[in-house]
């Protein structure tokens, strides 16, 4: 829905970025678990799995960046103020946009964290 010529924020837009983190986390874990089980040949490298996780990581980071970009632009367009305790729809939007931005930053960092094991572990040991 559009208000003030921009997307109206709500609780779903707020949790979109951490939801992407959740997807990335489950995808990485399930794929690695599936690839490594039954755990018969633990010294075999799992390049394909690692590449797939890296690919999904890139997509997820991009989506989170898009969410962050939208939140940032709309928050800046509205003056980018940190004060959002007024009784106006603008203050509500400002609050949700800034909180979305913060959650997107956290989710970005968390997705990067989640990808680090792929760089370190090359097999199923």
């Amino acid at each position: 829905m559009q208000v003030f010529g921009k997307t109206q924020d709500n609780l779903w837009t707020l949790v979109a970025a951490p939801t992407i983190w959740g997807f990335h986390f489950l995808f990485s874990y399930f794929l690695a678990a599936y690839r490594c089980a039954p755990n018969d040949d633990i010294f075999n490298t799992i390049g394909g799995t690692r590449a797939a996780i890296a690919g999904v990581t890139a997509v997820c980071l991009l989506l989170i960046l898009l969410i962050a970009r939208r939140a940032w632009r709309e928050w800046r367009a509205d003056g980018g103020g940190y004060s959002n305790n007024q009784d106006t729809p603008e203050a509500r939007e400002r609050f949700l946009e800034f909180s979305t931005l913060l959650l997107a930053a956290l989710s970005f960092a968390a997705v990067v964290f989640e990808t680090l094991p792929v760089l370190v572990f090359w097999d199923c040991r």
Partner: peptide, 16 residues
């Protein structure tokens, strides 16, 4: 006895 790569994902989230 889960594979180390699996432990890594959870360790990363535990730090995050």
């Amino acid at each position: 006895g889960l594979p180390s790569i699996s432990l890594g994902f959870f360790s990363a989230a535990s730090e995050a």
